[in-house]
């Protein structure tokens, strides 16, 4: 069941990427995407602090960035 979920997730993700070449915008259509808050890593400090908390308290880490090691967390 869990394996199936993985495969379905991958297929859904890949299907969304399948039409990459026909997606997208022209350079002059980037007014909204160019805003700071639209960057994928916007609020990087918040994301880093959250990663540290959840790395310490949960069994999974990473995904957005490297899972890493880095603390002997209690």
């Amino acid at each position: 069941m869990k394996r199936k979920l993985v495969y379905v997730s991958v297929i859904v993700a890949l299907s969304q990427l399948g039409g990459c070449a026909s997606l997208g915008v022209q350079p002059w259509e980037r007014d909204l995407l160019a805003k700071d808050e639209m960057a994928l890593g916007a609020e990087g400090v918040d994301l880093g602090l959250d990663d540290h908390i959840y790395f310490s308290k949960e069994a999974t880490s990473g995904g957005r960035s490297f899972a890493g090691g880095g603390c002997g967390c209690n």
């Binding site: 993700a13 969304q16 990427l17 990459c20 997606l23 997208g24 915008v25 259509e29 980037r30 007014d31 909204l32 995407l33 639209m38 994928l40 990473g62 995904g63 957005r64 490297f66 899972a67």
Partner: peptide, 16 residues
């Protein structure tokens, strides 16, 4: 893979 979908949307998929 990061993909601009349209003027309002972008998407990222990572495998780690």
């Amino acid at each position: 893979v990061t993909q601009v979908i349209n003027r309002r949307m972008l998407m990222q998929f990572n495998y780690g």
